[in-house]
Design a protein around this nucleic acid. Sequence first.
DNA 1: CATGAGGAGACAC
DNA 2: GTGTCTCCTCATG
Length: 322
Amino acid sequence: MGSPDRDLVASSLHPPYVDFSGFGHSDTWSTEDIKPPLSLTDRGLPGVYLSRFDMFLSEDTAWLLKKAEPADAAPPCNAEAAHCKEPEQCPVIDSQGLGLSPGLEGQVEDRCLEQVQTMVVGEVLKDIETACKLLNIGPDPMEWSSGNVQKWLLWTEHLYRLPQVGKDFHELTGKDMCVMTEDDFRQRSLQCGDVLYAHLDIWKSAAWMKERCGNNLLGAEDLCSEADSCCSGQPIHLWQFLRELLLKPHSYGRCIRWLNKEKGIFKIEDSAHVAKLWGIRKNRPAMNYDKLSRSIRQYYKKGIIRKPDVSQRLVYQFVHPV
DNA sequence: CATGAGGAGACAC
DNA sequence: GTGTCTCCTCATG
């Protein structure tokens, strides 16, 4: 369980940035916006380095409203929750307009921040769980083999559009990587060592928090979906993989997205990227869209995936929508 | 040229 | 046997 060391890691991540200004834009990914200005850490948020806050801006923001509404929530907080649709406004408490006394104002602010904090941490954990399933690796970097490390590196490169650095971390196990300092990372990769270090720190903290809190940070609904899509130990099927990507629009919406979720119709926006991700998952570096699409077409006969009635390029349909 | 359809052989489990 | 992966040809826009 949480050793003092890990406590230290969780409470003093480097750098402990939380930036709400990143909410809502999801165009290009650059290393510049991975280092947002400090905005909330001095208000007591935990050391969670959120490189891309649009990770948490799903197309459907209902979860945000739902989760910001605890049973005993004070009315002002609920009112504020509505503001959370505009994430950059989230940390701003308009207590003056609510006519709160200074003491109550502080309490409300703390409670709202606490809620945001819980949501954020929960979403980080969910994203990590998804990545674990997609990569077939464990959540704790300390337990990664060198193969796992390479997978994680490849994945992170693709996620953040980083240059390839796998060779710079050749033969390193997760344990090796975990004891490395930020400078060690920079020495191995001048370009993106700091980003990788920060990203690894998120994983390390998540592993530690999970160890300490279990799944308490995930809601019941989330646990159901986790169980539903769970494939631990089993080789993942392509259709499962695609569905996992589709269920994380805030992370993978740029490469694959629903056109009609009810009907199970989806479009592969970036065929090369999806193929690359599938290749990483299956340890098939030579994977490309040509091969991936051939595998998808195998599903026609099996009645798993088909072309929609109105056939479009790169558009497929799950025969049995989720 | 990118994509789509499908045949066929190979391979891992 | 199943589920891909790989290579292939041919068709389409």
